[in-house]
Simulated assay, not measured.
Amino acid sequence: MSEGAVQTLDAVFVGHRGALVRLLARIVGSASTAEDLAQEAYLRVSAALRERPVEQLEPFLFQTARNLAFDHLRQEQRRRLVVVPDIDNDGMEAVPAARPSPETEVADRQLLARLEEALGRLTERQRRIVLLNRMEGLSHAAIADRLGVSVSTVQKELKIALLACLEIFARLNGQRLRNPGRPDVY
């Protein structure tokens, strides 16, 4: 940025600082926040001048300040949605927990019963592999290490177990599972 651009920006900022701060205070509702935003606008315009020349410096400064004010308001609104001031633990306990509808509860129970049935039809090793992988998040290598088998055995057993679960779910839903590699699966 040239020395002339710095002097021009300084002159525009000093000459219009009062109007700029009043405008920002009307937008954000706080004189101290308006002062901070005016300073931030000056810094942003100064950085922009290093990148390229700006012909209409005064409108650019005011528009930058307005954009910062609106960004500030959006941030405050998000913060208010997340943080609820002056509520203690007793107040939070009084807020009812979100509960699923009775229909959702019944559907979830049916799904759990299907899952239990599917797991019940697996061998003990297959059931352990599925639970270690899906519930505990263990990798194939970690499961192989824990069970004392090869990684390829874990992969094969997991594939068989998951396919068996899918078959049971498909049958219970009145659907057919198509798999050309296994004639017993439709």
Results as ranks from 00 to 15, higher is better:
128 R>W: 00
137 G>V: 01
95 V>G: 00
130 V>I: 15
97 A>S: 12
135 M>R: 10
99 R>K: 14
110 Q>E: 13
92 M>H: 02
103 E>L: 15
132 L>H: 00
134 R>I: 00
117 E>Y: 08
93 E>I: 03
138 L>E: 03
125 R>F: 05
124 E>V: 06
127 R>W: 05
129 I>F: 01
92 M>R: 02
135 M>K: 08
138 L>D: 02
111 L>Q: 09
90 D>K: 02
127 R>P: 08
96 P>F: 01
129 I>L: 02
124 E>Y: 06
117 E>A: 13
102 P>C: 07
140 H>V: 02
101 S>M: 11
136 E>K: 14
136 E>Y: 11
101 S>P: 03
91 G>C: 01
112 L>C: 07
120 G>F: 08
91 G>F: 00
93 E>F: 09
102 P>E: 07
102 P>V: 11
103 E>H: 11
104 T>C: 09
129 I>T: 01
111 L>A: 14
121 R>A: 13
103 E>Y: 12
126 Q>R: 05
102 P>T: 06
139 S>Y: 04
111 L>P: 06
125 R>Y: 06
92 M>N: 00
92 M>D: 01
111 L>R: 13
106 V>R: 12
99 R>A: 15
132 L>C: 02
131 L>S: 11
136 E>V: 04
96 P>I: 03
127 R>Y: 06
96 P>Q: 07
90 D>N: 14
129 I>V: 15
118 A>K: 03
106 V>D: 09
92 M>Y: 01
132 L>T: 00
113 A>H: 13
123 T>H: 07
140 H>D: 09
99 R>D: 07
133 N>V: 02
93 E>G: 04
102 P>I: 10
94 A>L: 05
124 E>W: 10
101 S>H: 08
101 S>E: 09
123 T>E: 13
122 L>I: 05
98 A>Y: 12
120 G>K: 12
112 L>D: 08
97 A>F: 06
140 H>Y: 12
103 E>A: 15
130 V>C: 06
140 H>I: 03
89 N>V: 13
100 P>C: 12
101 S>V: 12
124 E>Q: 14
133 N>W: 01
95 V>Q: 01
89 N>H: 09
102 P>L: 12
138 L>F: 07
130 V>T: 09
115 L>T: 10
126 Q>Y: 05
89 N>C: 11
116 E>A: 12
90 D>Y: 04
120 G>M: 09
111 L>T: 15
139 S>A: 13
110 Q>R: 09
118 A>Y: 03
97 A>C: 08
115 L>R: 15
104 T>E: 10
119 L>E: 08
99 R>H: 05
116 E>K: 14
109 R>C: 05
106 V>E: 15
118 A>N: 05
